[in-house]
Design a protein around this nucleic acid. Sequence first.
DNA 1: AAATGCCGCAACCGCCCAGGG
DNA 2: TCCCTGGGCGGTTGCGGCATT
Length: 286
Amino acid sequence: MGRSPCCEKAHTNKGAWTRDEDQRLIDYIRTHGEGCWRSLPKAAGLLRCGKSCRLRWINYLRPDLKRGNFTEEEDQLIIKLHSLLGNKWSLIAARLPGRTDNEIKNYWNTHIKRKLLSRGIDPQTHRPLNQAADTDAVSNAPTELDFRNVPRVSNTKSTANPSLDFKFNDSQIKAKAESLEEGNSSSSGMTTDEEQQLQQQHKDKHPSDGQELNLELSIGISSFGRNSNSTAGVSTASSAESKPRLDNRKFHFPGQASICLCCQLGFQTSEICSNCQTTNGFNRYC
DNA sequence: AAATGCCGCAACCGCCCAGGG
DNA sequence: TCCCTGGGCGGTTGCGGCATT
């Protein structure tokens, strides 16, 4: 007894989308907003699976997508976030405004993986390749990318990196990372005190690294301060509003005004930098 | 100029989870 | 509490374009 198919496959198109199909989808979402993907194709006059429509919209047609090459800063951010979160592409994408999980995943597999390998770094463990083979080996050998400060969470089985002088083990940190999706950091396995302790330890070790990436983990949507701005004129009334899902565009940090991603990461100092201003005039908070 | 190989990316697939009845 | 459904996610595939021979 298998799952019922998400759509009637016999009468659906597959493969590349035509310009006409794109336009129909855009027009429909402009008028009705996102949501109820299953019924959308029929309503929009598309011979497509609902999931296919959703993917097409999210990965390609959404007006707030940033097209074009990844910057060096984005590269570094992806690497750092991957070292922290593993293959949680949606979480990584949530910290890269205008980028989709699919895009980042592809970029990782085609560019960054190779880049890291060429530097002798295992892309899964983020350790030097010779060390990755022997996880018990203790090495302080410097690498081009210094991840000493980044608690590592990956899908692969791993032992705690001895060079990480953190009180918290990987599972705790992973639990923390998973809690990001819940939009409420206090619901994670890590208490607020523990978080502060972790941050304090980091501060103590690196008192002057203000230029380094601030991997503040409270990136979930808080229950307050969620802004209901629509996406470039497109109503997003349904599911995105009703579920505590990650929204790629806005994060509000408890007790803080909206701070843009670049500023959080130390790339910028102003509250809303030009990097976070989209071409359609909307600010991307992170 | 044609054939072949490689690479990048869009799209699909299958699984999982949350919410509602 | 269970079942069904919708939606989301990560992994994989396959096609088209580009580079090389």
